[in-house]
Design a protein around this nucleic acid. Sequence first.
DNA 1: GCGACAG
DNA 2: ATCTTGTCGC
Length: 221
Amino acid sequence: MPYDFDGWDGSPATAREIQKQLATQVRLEDDFPELRLIAGVDVGFEEGGDITRAAAVLLDARTLELVAECVARIPTTMPYIPGLLSFRELPALLQAFASLPETPDLVFVDGHGIAHPRRLGVAAHFGVVSGLPTIGVAKKILTGTHAELGLSRGSRADLLDRRGEIIGTVLRSKERCLPLIVSPGHRVSLVSAPDLVLAYLTRYRLPEPTRLADKLASRRK
DNA sequence: GCGACAG
DNA sequence: ATCTTGTCGC
């Protein structure tokens, strides 16, 4: 067995079983008005990919002020396989997240939520495992199609799966920039997910939680 | 069988 | 994701 994570042995059959179990736990619930703390998580790599570096940042939901930041570095155990991203990044992500001094009310995850072939992108998986509300914020589409969207900030279009079901929102977060792909992870509705992303947007393409986590994970500046 | 394909 | 400087355009 080349890999090992919660019973994962690298075979497509095992992957299907794990995804099937987790997918049944994904539920889109209520929305929430008063948020106090929000978090952002992302992953980067070091040593040519041998080391997975996860970052978690905690922000004051009202002022967007950085409250805390944590980094976890662990050996990489799996290769990148489209559709199975969470199995590669979740261990490090959870470790960094667990180091935060407080639990946030909402977590923004770099990657897709339910805008995934099996409705189980890394943001949905993270939500199910942590039990916290999560939103997936990706920079590219993994699956799905959408109509053209406006050029102004805030313009959006539904992301549809092969059957015409809405699985996310293509959102123009900044003018003259490629749109973000926003989808619910856990305990957040399809409608409120993009609104929450807009709520924590400043002058950049990415919302603050994800932007800061991304910067810390890739050790850039 | 031939493409598409988050990070 | 990561390897990488300058450069075009708002």
